[in-house]
Each structure stands twice: as structure tokens, then as C-alpha cells.
């Protein structure tokens, strides 16, 4: 039995379907219910907040988990990163008003949920920034003049466009990863590798 932490939402469902096709199905998961844990024959699933998946895995509450590379870069959890699942693709980008131009006279005000990634990005170019940590509706910040730009995930760019914003530069492209707890990997080595190999095979077949 392998414990798998899935991120709530579309990505989690998409990856669950992949796992089901690999023989790790758990029919109960499709039933409408408020349950958080579902036990199949080979795997036990639980749904957690996407940004918490890495914590469950790092602390060993789950053996493996599905998490976006953005979360891995932001929090650097001490885990193994076994596979790139090629789904949940998006990019981390700097966005701002269409008429934005950087004023090098003062620190750039950056609103973001991803403070670590934003800081790294601007550290590399030695640009002084003032980070404004927000937890949601980041797009509001430049509109209201709270910040000059935002650093955020962009999937289609639709939300940005509707609010008069546009991508100014792409920092990185991301996708979902299969991660494993380092200790579980040792004690459930064969089970973990079998799962990774099955998913990898599925990806190769397309």
C-alpha cells in the first residue's frame, strides 16, 4: 500500500486518472462525498491543498505526492523528485500594466505569492525590489497602484488581459512532478519505483 497525496482541483483529478490507468485505481474516489481519504487495493489517496502536498510528503504523512514545480522551487522541500508528469503546465511570469516601464530610480514594487522565486529572479539581475506578499487576487495590485508588477502563475493569460495587464517576461515554465519522501523511498523502494515506472511508461506511450 502506497500513500499518495493529491492536490485538490483539476490537476489532482487529471493525475488521478493517469494513476487509475496505471492500475492504481480506487473506485470510491469518484463517489460524491466529503471524505478526505480513499483506499484502493494498491494505493491510499488523500486530497490536500496544492501548496501543502510537499509538506505532507516531506514529513512522511504521504509516501509520494503530486505537486507543481513552482511549489518545489518556492519552498525547496527535502524530497526526491522522481518524474516530470508533463501535465499542469503553466509559467511563472512577471506581469504589469500594458504601459509599464521600469523606473530604475527606486526599488521595484513586486506583488506575489511566490516571494522566494521573485527574489531569486531579481537578485540575479541585481535589481532592488520591494516584495509585497499577497495570498490571492494578485492581479489587483498593479491596478490599484499597490505594486508596479506582479510575479504569478500564468496559464492562458486571459485573467491578465481582462484586467488590462500583460506578461512582461517569462521567468520559468512549470509542470507537475511526482515527488517522494526520502525515508519512504528507502523502505517502500520497490513499490515506489513500480509506481514511477508505470506512470513513466504511460507518459512514453502518450
Amino acid at each position: 500500500m502506497i500513500d499518495i497525496a493529491l492536490p485538490k482541483g483539476r490537476l489532482g483529478e487529471q493525475v488521478y486518472d493517469m494513476l487509475e490507468r496505471c492500475g492504481y485505481g480506487c473506485p470510491a474516489i469518484h463517489a460524491e462525498s466529503r471524505k478526505l481519504i480513499f483506499e484502493g487495493e494498491r494505493a491510499r489517496y488523500f486530497w490536500v491543498k496544492p501548496s501543502d502536498v510537499a509538506i505532507y510528503v516531506e514529513r512522511g504523512a504521504a509516501d509520494v505526492g503530486i505537486v507543481g514545480k513552482d511549489i518545489l522551487l518556492e519552498y525547496s522541500p527535502d524530497v526526491y523528485e522522481l518524474l516530470d508528469l508533463g501535465v499542469g503546465k503553466c509559467r511563472m511570469a512577471v506581469a504589469g500594466k500594458r504601459d509599464f516601464s521600469d523606473d530604475f530610480d527606486r526599488p521595484l514594487r513586486v506583488a506575489t505569492k511566490f516571494t522566494h522565486i521573485a527574489r531569486e529572479h531579481y537578485d540575479h539581475r541585481n535589481r532592488e525590489i520591494d516584495i509585497i506578499k499577497l495570498n490571492g487576487s494578485i492581479e489587483l495590485a498593479p491596478i490599484l497602484g499597490l505594486s508596479d508588477v506582479i510575479v504569478d502563475l500564468v496559464e492562458t493569460g486571459k485573467t491578465l488581459a481582462e484586467n488590462g495587464l500583460e506578461v512582461l517576461e517569462t521567468i520559468l515554465h512549470f509542470s507537475a512532478r511526482l515527488i517522494a519522501n526520502k525515508v519512504s523511498y528507502k523502505f517502500k523502494h520497490d513499490e515506489t519505483e513500480q509506481l514511477a515506472a508505470a506512470v513513466s511508461g504511460l507518459l512514453a506511450r502518450g
Binding site: E58, R59, G60, D78, N181, K182, V183, F187
Partner: peptide
């Protein structure tokens, strides 16, 4: 060194 039941080395 790892011991089963402890989440890290």
C-alpha cells in the same frame, strides 16, 4: 541512516 517511522535521516 534511516529508521522506519521517522520522517527524515
Amino acid at each position: 541512516g534511516y529508521v522506519e517511522g521517522v520522517h527524515t535521516a
